[in-house]
Design a protein around this nucleic acid. Structure first.
Lengths: 118, 118
DNA sequence: GTAGGGTGGTTACCTTGGGAAACCAGATAG
DNA sequence: CTATCTGGTTTCCCAAGGTAACCACCCTAC
């Protein structure tokens, strides 16, 4: 295990980071941390395509970040909730969301400056 | 400005998050936060392809996260350093790296369980 | 009846983006 | 005159992602 070296491609830590550092993963985790949600609600809230939503949710489930619950209602209801592990991660990701909100102005200004120079 | 609503596709905050939540961006920012680095050093350290490295660095520069300095040595030397804005972001991202290191075991265990069930 | 609608998916199909490798400019070393 | 080192750009290919259609399920409306 080449752990501790994030920059070794074979390091498991890097594999985890590769998985986490994905925009849909981040958005779904932040959403689910606010409470359980159904498939179609997640789709509407994020604008993600159905295919990728299903894929991402299955990965979240496999990685132990979310759990899937099927209810035999009519029509069938599937609810996704965050796990304790996922909630822990979501707390860290929340920092990222807050950072985006706080520094959006600085980023847009930097982009304007850069584009003006070109 | 539909700010404050991360889940609105037109929200600038979401645009920033989409940009940040990328594995190469995260890795380069963490690397650069440790000190300035040259193009080829970044390439060797991460294993990123040359094309995508150049693309990602240009984006980092445009967003105000990194700065590019060319030195008229022979052969020419190009050094990338982190900006104050980038350093601020890197601090937040560092939390993500630490989380990966700390919870890698739990994630791998969850994956084993999930695969065993199938 | 059967046509429609709302679930949660899966399956084509196409377009985009990333990876591998070649190429390039500029200058020096051999 | 070729080789090499740098930081790129270009070319090609394949694997992601998006779009849209379809499916099974069961209910309601006609």
């Amino acid at each position: 295990m080449d752990c501790g070296d994030l920059f070794n491609p074979d390091c498991p830590t890097r594999l985890v980071l590769d998985r986490i550092a994905d925009k849909w993963t981040v958005m779904l985790l932040v959403l689910l941390s606010q409470g359980p949600m159904r498939f179609s609600a997640l789709k509407r809230a994020t604008g993600i395509s159905q295919k990728v939503l299903a894929q991402t949710l299955r990965r979240l489930e496999r990685d132990g970040f979310a759990s899937r619950a099927v209810f035999a209602t009519v029509p069938v209801t599937v609810e996704y909730s965050i796990t304790p592990l996922g909630a822990d991660l979501a707390e860290t990701l929340e920092g990222l969301r807050l950072w985006s909100e706080r520094h959006i102005g600085a980023v847009l200004a930097a982009q304007r400056d850069y584009d003006a120079a070109a």
